[in-house]
Design a protein around this nucleic acid. Structure first.
Length: 859
RNA sequence: GUCGGGGUGGCGGAACCGGUAGACGCGCAUGGUUCAGGACCAUGUGGGGUAACACCCAUGAGGGUUCGAGUCCCUCCUCCGACACCA
């Protein structure tokens, strides 16, 4: 007998492994989440950032992100949307290649292996993923179109090859984009980056700077992300001022945001890369420039940012007061910002520091109204950088800084000596990578074509980059590169020849020579020119991973089209993306690039929208004991053991219970058992034979207590609102509260429990499906409509009127909702706890907030 | 330095427009159940105070506005994140 009971008890226990596997197989077989993309009536594109499969498996941080997004998808699905929730792998790139190198395997094999394991793990999550449409960026079927995209960008004048000082990571042995350099270090491996002058491929994202900025107002994104983008774009308004050079026809345009300080200009500084310097023959200067370029960020840091510079030997004329000021070259001026030149004065800390070091005179022209400070500033003991009143500034004396900035700029503009200028922090996107594991850039260099088209190129000055050339549709014969002193025409690989396949080579490791490993594979490099059919060579660099991920969301709904990257009609139906959820670390990388590419595609006429994601929400970070999980720290938590111990439903729900989605949380605290207990208790309640028969069978009006009904509707309201706002943690709390009430009351009806299960189903899809069936309901719980609450029922609840005396709570009264102020005061004054505060029997003042509180004031 | 976000029990975190601070969960305590362990169930759990109430104190610190402040304003302390020689 005892044994039998134990077995029975065991059988009835909540066993996540058993039911989760069962339902997953069932759903997969039925293709339960499949959406017919062509026919769907209410398309909802629920997108999450796809993972880099650059590890053996998922960590709980990935799980957190995917589950949060999946819950949103499930919620939208139950609202009646046709939810398309795709998944894929961002499998090209340095992360994947580095991982393969570490493992000593070929990236192709390692990536395949990783993807296989990731897939197994992802399938355990119980998400709505459409696996038939999985996108893998390292497959030729995909990167063919990444290369196609590059060709279109080139034809539109948005891709160019140019020589520029670029950041080089000596460990990854490749150049990096501006965005991938963090505090002078490589984003991937933390190595200190070096500056190199290299000929590289760029995408002209700066052309879109203003649009990228302005459009932010039109999209529903987390404010944090928008701010990060605004900062990165870094639009600055200022003035460009033309300084004539003494005894020369040359002039220098200097950029400033403080035109009001122009009277105080006592020197001019050029960036070491400034074009004017190239024409200066003085040996000392050239040496300085070379040395500055060779400097690494580390060296600059070690010197504690000490500024260095050298006097050029010539002088410039201040257009305002005609003063003669020396022109210097210094490494604190940056070529990429403003005009690459600035004037130095006493109202900028960097200028002052530099001037002191080289004993260049300074002159203060701006002061505050404060007497004491006036003296200090005029004696130059202190560098005053704020706005103030102008002194010693000719006709501008006495003006405020703001006024003067305007007037000075106007004056200069009138005289043709300056103009308003806008500059940006944003730089063009450098996409060349001297690595193996990426899509080869589909370009061929042909010597013969260059020879035969040389006449087309007007200017022979090729010392600078191609940035400023005019844009035409067909640049054949005009654009060229110089390799080892020989000119080659840039010829695009014809679209019909795509993809340029990445050959499987043995020696795929980065070379460090400034060239991709592909450069030593002659079978790849040597090719025929598609124009002249003569022998030519291929570009051997591959493109940045972020180019792969800049358009993947367009591919998902169109994976069945082999002859085009995406289908216009399909795209029109499903895009822009309804909701995008992902990590905040991509705020200025992926999210900015993606917006740029979308705008470019719109301008080229391929799509009809300029913003890819209508709504974006950043999720927080899951940490381990307060620190970021990372492979290098070795504190990555593998979710597998938790799946085995507690099941996916518990892991899903627990992760969401940690805190608000936007804030992330710490894993693990022991709290996971709390959710597991909750599910066990739910299981027990539903499995109770008594519930399955008598009470559950009754109609709700007869059996339910009003209390439970009110709570049911309240819970629907709360959970619905919370899910809309991604406040999953409080939604779960409300569900627990509701469950606790049902369990306690012992009068729960089937409807009340069904509501609980439906509301819980986005969090715990397997468990709720099982219990839904156990209660004798038909069909899948996931096909149920989302419950609606009845506002009338919420009003039936008794009001708990808070009674305060002098703003402090003294009593809580249960009263009818419609109670009037008069009635409430009278009732309150009958209470012992209240009465004693009013010896006179009457309050001096009464504050009554209907439906909420009563405050009686005794003074 | 600049920009952004925080500081609430032993812990994770709740608290709509200013209106019962600490929901929900973890942990802990006591009791029940069990051969035992675990699991489970019940009750309690910010601090002081009380037999129990009452009452007092409490949301980083200090001040202010208000009938009433975690929430609004000012000053300061502190932690975290992003960017950083950007003129």
């Amino acid at each position: 007998m005892a044994k039998l009971a134990t077995i029975r008890e065991h059988m009835e226990r909540y066993n996540p492994q058993e039911i989760e596997g069962k339902w997953r197989r069932f759903w997969e077989k039925r293709k339960a989440w499949k959406v017919n993309l062509g026919r769907a009536k209410k398309p909802y594109y629920n997108l999450m950032m796809f993972p880099y499969p650059s590890a053996e498996g998922l960590h709980v941080g990935n799980v957190y992100a995917f589950v949060g997004s999946d819950i949103h998808g499930r919620f939208q699905r139950m609202w009646g949307h046709d939810v398309f929730e795709p998944i894929g792998f961002d499998s090209f790139g340095i992360h994947s290649e580095n991982f393969a190198i570490k493992k000593g395997t070929h990236p192709k094999e390692q990536t395949a292996k990783n993807i296989k394991h990731f897939t197994e793990q992802l399938k355990q999550l119980g998400a709505l993923f459409d696996w038939d449409r999985a996108v893998i960026t390292s497959e030729p079927e995909y990167y063919k179109w990444t290369q196609w995209l590059f060709l279109q960008l080139y034809k539109a004048g948005l891709a160019y090859k140019g020589k520029a000082p670029v950041d080089w990571c000596p460990s990854c042995k490749t150049v990096l984009a501006d965005e991938q350099v963090i505090e002078g270090k490589c984003e991937r491996c933390d190595s200190v980056v070096l500056q190199k002058d290299l000929e590289q491929w760029f995408l002209r994202i700066t052309k879109y700077a203003d649009r990228l900025l302005k459009n932010l107002e039109t999209i529903d994104w987390s404010e944090k992300t928008k701010i990060a983008q605004r900062n990165w774009i870094g639009r600055t308004e200022g003035t460009s001022i033309t300084f004539k050079i003494e005894n020369s026809k040359e002039e220098i345009k200097a950029f400033t945001t403080r035109a009001d300080t122009l009277y105080g200009a006592t020197f001019l500084v050029l960036a070491p890369e400034h074009p004017l310097i190239a024409s200066v023959t003085s040996k000392g200067i050239q040496e300085y420039v070379e040395a500055a370029k060779r400097k690494t960020e580390l060296e600059r840091r070690a010197e504690e940012k000490e500024k260095t510079g050298v006097f050029t030997g010539f002088y410039a004329i201040n257009p305002l007061n005609k003063e003669k000021i020396p022109v210097w070259v210094a490494d604190y001026a940056l070529m990429g910002y403003g005009t690459g030149a600035l004037f130095g004065d006493a109202h900028d800390e960097r200028d002052v520091e530099f001037a002191r070091k080289y004993t260049i005179p300074l002159k203060a022209t701006v002061i505050t109204g404060d007497k004491k400070q006036d003296q200090k500033i005029l004696s130059l003991e202190q560098c005053f950088t704020e706005y103030g009143i102008l002194v010693d500034s000719g006709p501008f004396t006495g003006m405020t800084s703001r006024e003067a900035m305007k007037k000075v700029t106007e004056w200069l503009t009138e005289k043709g000596l300056g103009e308003s200028k806008v500059t940006y922090h944003l730089r063009d996107w450098l996409i060349s990578r001297q690595r193996y594991w990426g899509p080869p850039i589909p370009v061929i260099y042909c010597r013969k074509c260059r020879e035969s088209t040389k006449h087309k190129t007007q200017s022979t000055n090729k010392s600078q980059n191609t940035k400023h050339k005019s844009q035409t549709e067909d640049r054949y014969g005009i654009d060229y590169v110089v390799i080892n002193g020989v000119e080659y025409a840039i010829v695009l690989v014809p679209e019909k020849d795509l993809p340029v396949r990445l050959p499987k080579i043995k020696d795929f490791r980065p070379t460090g020579t400034g060239k991709s490993p592909l450069a030593s594979v002659s079978s790849f490099m040597k090719t025929k020119c598609p124009v002249c059919k003569g022998s030519a060579q291929r570009e051997t660099d591959v493109s940045d991973t972020f180019l792969d991920s800049a358009w993947y969301f367009l591919r998902y709904p169109c994976t069945e089209y082999a002859n085009k990257p995406f289908d216009k009609k399909r795209i029109k139906k499903w895009l822009p993306v309804s909701m995008y959820i992902g990590g905040h670390e991509h705020a200025v990388l992926h999210l900015l690039y993606t917006r740029f590419i979308t705008m470019a595609l719109e301008d080229m006429g391929y799509i009809e929208f300029g913003e890819p994601f209508k709504k974006f929400r950043a999720h927080g970070l899951i940490t381990k004991e307060g620190t970021k999980m990372s492979k290098s720290r070795g504190n990555v938590v593998n979710p597998d053991e938790y799946f085995v111990k507690y099941g996916a439903d518990t892991v899903r729900t627990y992760l969401m219970f940690l805190g608000p989605m936007a804030e992330g949380g710490d894993w693990p605290d022991k709290g996971i058992v709390g959710v597991y207990r909750f599910f066990n208790r739910l299981w027990t309640l539903v499995a109770k034979p008594s519930l399955a028969t008598a009470k559950l069978g009754l109609a709700s009006e007869l059996a339910s207590e009003l209390v439970n009904e009110v709570l049911r509707h309240k819970t629907i309201k709360k959970v619905t609102e919370d899910l809309e706002n991604l406040r999953y943690n409080t939604a779960i709390a409300a569900l627990m509260e509701y469950f606790n009430a049902l369990q306690r009351s012992d009068k729960a009806t089937r409807e009340q429990i069904n509501t609980l299960l439906i509301l819980l189903s986005p969090f715990a899809p397997h468990l709720t499906e099982e219990l839904w069936g156990k209660l004798g309901n038909k069909g899948s719980i996931h096909n149920q409509p989302w419950p609606k609450y009845n506002p009338r029922i919420l009003k039936e609840e008794q009001l708990r009127l808070v009674v305060q005396v002098n703003g402090r709570v003294r009593e809580v009264l249960s009263v009818a909702r419609g109670i009037s102020e008069k009635e409430a005061v009278a009732l309150a004054l009958q209470q012992e706890k209240i009465k004693k505060w009013f010896p006179s029997g009457k309050p001096k003042n009464v504050v009554f907030i209907k439906g909420r509180l009563l405050n009686l004031v005794s003074y």
